[in-house]
Simulated scan of single mutants.
Amino acid sequence: MSPICSAKGCQAPAVWSLLWNNPKLHTPDRRKSWLACDEHRTSLGDFLGARGFLRDVEPLDPSGPVDAG
């Protein structure tokens, strides 16, 4: 099964991994990920960035493990 975008209601294939952490809850090296399609990459990134959570955005590696939590 192909990973899908994390945006609410979106069923498009994910092509981006938005790596984030909440510094109040996670250690500095911990990274969680939200997956995004091209259409939602910016809006999901803006949401995380406004809270100071966004750490990196990378192309999704379809062969790698996915932690969409």
Rank of each mutant, 00 (worst) to 15 (best):
A36K: 01
G49I: 03
L44I: 04
G64K: 12
G52H: 10
K32G: 02
S17E: 14
M1N: 04
P65H: 12
G69C: 09
G52V: 05
D67W: 06
S63Q: 06
L60D: 01
W34A: 00
V15T: 15
K8Y: 12
K24R: 08
G64F: 13
K8M: 13
C10N: 13
H40R: 02
F53H: 12
M1K: 04
Q11H: 08
W20C: 02
T42N: 05
K8T: 10
L44G: 01
K32M: 08
R51V: 02
H40G: 07
R51A: 07
A68W: 05
P65Q: 11
P3N: 06
Q11S: 15
A36W: 00
C5Q: 01
N22S: 07
A14F: 00
M1S: 07
E58T: 14
C5R: 01
I4L: 14
C5G: 02
L44S: 02
P3V: 13
N21W: 03
K24M: 14
S17G: 03
P59A: 12
F53M: 14
F53I: 02
D61C: 12
K32W: 03
C10W: 00
P65L: 15
G49F: 05
G64P: 00
S33W: 00
R41G: 02
A36N: 00
V66M: 04
D61W: 09
P13V: 15
G64H: 13
R41A: 07
R30D: 11
P28M: 08
D56T: 09
H26R: 09
R55Y: 09
L48G: 01
K8E: 12
C37S: 04
A14C: 10
P3D: 08
N21Q: 09
N22K: 09
L35N: 01
K24V: 09
D67Y: 07
P62R: 11
A14Q: 00
V66E: 01
G52D: 05
D46T: 13
V66L: 11
E58N: 14
C10E: 05
L48Y: 01
S17R: 14
L54T: 08
G52R: 08
W20V: 05
V57M: 10
L60V: 03
F47E: 13
G45E: 04
K24D: 14
P23S: 10
